[in-house]
Structure formats: C-alpha cells, structure tokens
Design a protein around this nucleic acid. Structure first.
Lengths: 140, 140
DNA sequence: ATAAACCGTCACATTGATGTGAGGGTCAAG
DNA sequence: CTTGACCCTCACATCAATGTGACGGTTTAT
C-alpha cells in the first residue's frame, strides 16, 4: 500500500507518516519509482504509534521500545517497564504541580468572593440603593 | 533604575524584561539617551508577573488584568474572577487527562508484572536453573 | 498525449518564553 | 582618549509535531 492509502486508513496525515519514518518508527520499503510501500500491518503499527504518542511519549522515547512491543508482548520487552515507570513518575510530578497551582487559584477565588461579600454587606448597610457596584475595569 | 539593576534585583533576565514590556506588562519611561528607566516599584511588579506566569497564565492573558491587580486588590478587578475560574477549569481538564494517562500506564505496568510472574513460575517448575531470563532486548 | 491524482524531497511556518549574538551608541573611571 | 561596562534594536535559534507549499517526477485514465 502507498502512503496515501495508509494515511486514509489511519487518519494520520502523510506528513506525519513521513515524520515517523524519519524518527525511525516506521520503515516502509521503496518501490522502483521511489514510492514508499507499506505492508498491511502498517495500519496497526501506525495506530500503535498514535496510541503511545497519546500516552505522552515522544517519538524519540518511542523509538527505544516500539520495535520490541510491535513484535512481542510488552512483558517481554526489557526496556518497557522502566520507561513506563519513569513516565508515571513524570506524570505524578506534573499532576502535583498542576494541583498546587489549582489550589492556589481556588484560594484566591475564595478570598475574592469573601472580600466582595464583605464589601457588599458594608455598602448595603451604609448606602442603600446606589448604582455603583464598587468594581473597577482594567483602566488602560 | 536601569534594566540591568532590575534584572539583578529580580533574577529575571534582561531579555525577559524587554519581552514583558513588548507584551504590555511593564512600561518603563525612557531617558534622553533611550535607556529604559524603571521605578523602584518595578521590582514588585516583576515579581508579580513571575508569580502569575508561574500560575500558568500567558503574558497575553496577564495583560488583561495585571494593570488592575497591581493597583487594586484582586477583589476589585472585574476581569480577574472569570479568568481565574476558567484557568481552574483548564487545570481540571489537564489534571483529568494526565490522570487517565497515568491510570492507563499503571494498568499496563500491573499486567506486565503479573505476566512476568506467571512466566517465571512456569519456567521455574519446568526448567530449573536455566540462564535465560526470557526477555528480549530491542533488536534493531 | 494530456490531465488528474498520485508520489518524492526540501524547507519554512507554527507556538511562547527565552537565549544568544551582531552591530552600534553611551557613560564613567583611569 | 581609551577601556570596560552599560544600554539599544533587530533578528535568528530553541523545542516537537505537524501544516503548508514549491517544484518536479510518475501513474492512470481518458
């Protein structure tokens, strides 16, 4: 099968298929005219590549273990477990960071709401029925 | 104060200070010779910028509310609350995504370990004391 | 034989914040 | 008056995966 058909059948752009080849993830043979020729298995290979990229692996990391997992079960590929484990650690770190940022923002939101509520209460007691809402636009 | 001093006092590179200005986050005046001249308050302003960038805001988003929060308390800036809330939603989504990737990987690790254990058990019973560990390197 | 639909390579654009460096003014101390 | 330490602007490089387009060859169908 030629590159256009593979692209159609996997939903991956021709550009990306050529890129994967450049990164050592795919190895089509060449026809006499120079056209790339893919085996029917290439469809599953490409889906597998997409799957791993979706898990957050880079093409470079993928190059290190894709070949093995395409041929054998994951459990038989030495390099896979440490890669997965370090990826998990990396994800943990990212999740931790994002969570702490989120907490920080939530705390800020809470204190804004509280402060506005306070201000609102004071204003209502002091100055019933005025128009201003006590906010400022960003005056640039 | 000139840009070099501000850079030293904030730990932010000269390049970044100029970039912040380009993005509308800082507005130094210019001396007759064209040099940027910063007020002493610029130190806190820059620290504030770093803080918000660290929370994951882009300079473009920051440009929308920095001016107000530098002058007033956050609670008095209209634009701030919705920005924070949408940032929180975005963080939630990212955390959700990363967590699901993590779960997927953890499941894979579990099944690799289980499968190896099984293989190990079988091998030991059948074939005591052999050398091979039953693994393949990535044979490229 | 010609047009349409393929394929090939090469190379630049994208995103965001920052690094780096060229080429050139400015200013203080010696 | 020179040296060194500043400052200026402009512009290209980085990271990763992908888009886009130019230019040209090939294949297929009319």
């Amino acid at each position: 099968m030629k590159i256009g058909e593979l692209a159609r059948r996997t939903g991956v752009s021709i550009r990306s298929l050529r890129y994967y080849e450049e990164q050592g993830l795919l190895a089509p043979v060449r026809a006499d005219n120079g056209y790339r020729v893919y085996s029917p298995f290439a469809v599953e290979q490409v889906e597998r590549i997409q799957f791993y990229l979706g898990l957050g692996f880079s093409t470079e990391q993928l190059a290190g273990f894709l070949h093995c997992v395409l041929q054998h079960k994951e459990a038989f590929c030495r390099d896979v477990l440490p890669v997965y484990e370090s990826k998990i650690a990396e994800l943990d770190e990212q999740i931790r960071l994002l969570s702490s940022i989120k907490s920080n923002l939530e705390e800020r939101v809470r204190s804004i709401v509280a402060e506005r509520h306070e201000a609102e209460t004071n204003r209502t007691e002091r100055d019933k029925g005025a128009d201003s809402d006590g906010h400022y636009d960003d005056g640039r």
